[in-house]
């Protein structure tokens, strides 16, 4: 089943649109310059580039955690957004259920209503048996799953992920990539994903945005024209290798690799 893709140039229907965005950090570093980016609803877009290319900064700006120095940044039809950090960022003093419930508790939701949503979110990441566990009792991969469950519990229409699996071993990372893709297909939220793994970018995305550093800017874009669901076979197929080669070539050309 190929993913139905809306025309990404149609700004009116975009989930996120960024125009001529510039950002200078308080310490004077010019982090981003002239960023134009349109993300369609339900699209899976990956930002890739070396450290210091401003991809995390761009994600934080889109999340609203920082304000851009100049330029336009708009989110349309995004009622709920969620953020997954590189670290699981769980509260060590709270059980998994309470951690996942955090967005609901902060919004002052009723407890019984929240409990059902939490159970549902934990089930989606396969952690239904660990509601009562403390974060330190979980492995790194399971902690990351809990972190994703916390993001899913609000049923976001925009999910921002900043190298969420970057600190995990490759086997765990591959499995979580697969699970994330399955969730995205089931829920069809808009996904903005930051990584510096070429393979992860090709495997997951509708579209890969290549960024280059000093100052951070968008150097190139690659549309991965492959149908979903993308099975494990795809990761070892000749086509996959060709996409990776293309992307790698673009990154070298952009001075991003």
């Amino acid at each position: 089943m190929p993913a139905p893709l809306p025309d990404p140039t149609a700004i009116a229907t975009a989930a996120v649109s960024v125009r001529g965005l510039d950002h200078v950090h308080p310490n004077g570093t010019h982090a981003l310059t002239g960023i134009d980016l349109v993300v369609a609803p339900g699209e899976f877009v990956t930002l890739i580039g070396p450290s210091g290319c401003g991809k995390s900064t761009l994600l934080r700006l889109i999340a609203g955690l920082d304000r851009p120095t100049a330029g336009m940044l708009e989110r349309h039809a995004v009622e709920r957004s969620a953020f997954v950090f590189q670290q699981p960022t769980l509260m060590p003093w709270a059980r998994v259920a309470a951690n996942v419930a955090l967005p609901l508790t902060l919004a002052g939701r009723q407890a019984d209503d929240a409990a059902a949503k939490v159970r549902d979110a934990l089930k989606q990441v396969g952690l239904e048996d660990f509601e009562q566990a403390f974060p330190r009792e979980l492995s790194g991969g399971m902690q990351m799953r809990a972190s994703i469950a916390r993001a899913l519990v609000t049923e976001p229409d925009l999910l921002l992920m900043d190298e969420p699996f970057g600190a995990l071993d490759e086997i765990t990372r591959d499995r979580l990539d697969r699970e994330l893709l399955a969730l995205w297909q089931a829920r069809r939220f808009t996904a903005l994903f930051v990584t510096h793994s070429l393979h992860e970018a090709v495997y997951l995305s509708n579209r890969v945005v290549v960024m280059s550093p000093r100052p951070g800017r968008i150097a190139a874009e690659l549309r991965i024209d492959e149908p979903y669901p993308r099975a494990q076979d795809f990761r070892v197929s000749e086509r996959f290798v060709r996409w990776c080669k293309d992307l790698s070539g673009m990154m070298i050309e952009a001075g991003a690799a």
């Binding site: 999340a63 955690l65 950090f85 960022t89 509260m91 967005p103 508790t105 902060l106 919004a107």
Partner: peptide, 22 residues
């Protein structure tokens, strides 16, 4: 934890919630 503080801000926590829950 800076990340947790970001997370609380992202989900619209007020000062009191940040104090008591974080």
């Amino acid at each position: 934890d800076r990340g947790l503080l970001d997370l609380f801000r992202l989900y619209g926590a007020n000062r009191w919630q940040v104090l008591m829950s974080l």
